[in-house]
């Protein structure tokens, strides 16, 4: 049973070693002559302003949270998809209810504006709260 996972472990080792060798090779073979300007992060040729570890749009967090919720729901659907013929007709209706609830949640978040990437509408929403 677990033995069938051994090749995956071997593959992981091989893949990791391969990637590491390729990267180390360029470290050894390539030149290394750093200077102040070369080490600057790219900002269209201007002097970089501040650091890049800044705050970013809340929309990314919202997408991430929604992803966690919906990915879990997708995972719930998988076991049913495997055995739905043997599980009886009751589970089919149960699944319909589950999916309807899922849809209500999806359309609620969409109407609330999770996917509004427009700054104006985000500000508008913040004012409403």
């Amino acid at each position: 049973m677990l033995a069938s996972y051994v090749p995956i472990l071997v593959l992981f080792g091989v893949a990791f070693a391969l990637a590491l060798v390729l990267m180390t090779l360029s470290r050894i073979a390539g030149p290394y002559r750093p200077n102040k300007i070369k080490l600057d992060p790219y900002e269209s040729g201007m002097d970089p302003v501040g650091q890049a570890k800044e705050r970013y749009s809340i929309a990314f967090y919202l997408v991430a949270m929604e992803f966690i919720v919906f990915d879990l729901e997708v995972i719930f659907i998988y076991p049913w998809a495997v055995g739905f013929r043997d599980l009886g007709v009751g589970t089919f209706y149960a699944m319909v209810v589950f999916v309807v609830i899922l849809f209500v949640g999806l359309f609620y978040t969409l109407r609330k504006g999770t996917l509004d990437w427009d700054m104006k509408s985000l500000k508008h929403q913040a004012m409403k709260l």
Partner: peptide
């Protein structure tokens, strides 16, 4: 530590998930 990288990385992550 580059603004372009940060934005590109975030967008890529949001798109892929």
């Amino acid at each position: 530590n580059s603004k372009y990288s940060l934005l590109g990385g975030l967008r890529a992550a949001a798109q892929m998930i």
